[in-house]
């Protein structure tokens, strides 16, 4: 497999937009000539139930459609999942785990065992409520991903929001998302 391949796993609850976030990353990749793939772990789609989605990013065409077994990056959209799902399952020791929470990494590391993996936190829901007026943590989570992986930049997220996203939503919503992206980028903690 290509050494440039980055495999990402998203944990969320049905309705929180993990799949939408995975799609946003795929679209940003498409806009910048990167190869990508995004898909949910298929099953009954029930609002509130734990769901998993996957994203692959690479410089070379992606040929593997299997579930991601060893994610380099794990994103947790809902901190209540930490006590329900082993979000580190299969993630190697050098993986990064990004958790949507108002707590600090050291606080959640006291409660949950992440092994030697790097743990980042971001108050994505809080940012979303502040900027969008709704608890949709997608955009700040995507900018946290950008900061930690360097696979795409904050500017590219902003372009995507203004152009692609901007075709479907009014300017007010677009600008609120741009603000959410900036805050997300700034407020990631390690």
């Amino acid at each position: 497999m290509s050494s440039s391949l980055t495999e990402i796993r998203w944990h969320g609850r049905g309705g929180q937009g993990a799949v939408t976030a995975a799609k946003m990353v795929a679209e940003i990749a498409a806009e910048h000539g990167k190869c990508f793939q995004a898909f949910p772990e298929y099953g009954p789609e029930r609002s509130g139930a734990p769901i998993v989605a996957f994203t692959r990013l690479s410089d070379d065409p992606i040929q593997c459609y299997s579930a991601v077994e060893h994610p380099a990056i794990v994103l947790v959209l809902d901190e209540t999942l930490l006590s329900v799902v082993d979000v580190t399952d299969g993630a190697p020791a050098d993986a990064a785990v990004i958790v949507n929470t108002e707590k600090s990494p050291s606080e959640i590391k006291k409660v949950f065992d992440f092994g030697k993996r790097r743990v980042y936190t971001i108050p994505a829901t809080k940012i979303a409520k502040q900027t969008l007026g709704r608890a949709i943590p997608n955009t700040p989570m995507v900018s946290a991903l950008s900061k930690i992986t360097g696979q795409f930049s904050l500017g590219e997220i902003e372009d995507h929001l203004r152009h692609t996203f901007g075709k479907k939503f009014p300017p007010k919503v677009v600008e609120a998302n741009v603000e959410a992206a900036h805050m997300g980028f700034e407020e990631v903690q390690e």
């Binding site: 995975a22 799609k23 795929a26 498409a30 190869c35 990508f36 793939q37 995004a38 898909f39 949910p40 298929y42 992606i62 459609y65």
Partner: peptide
Amino acid sequence: YDGFIISGAIGP
């Protein structure tokens, strides 16, 4: 083409 694996996956 493959159900879910391709039908539901976002690709280029």
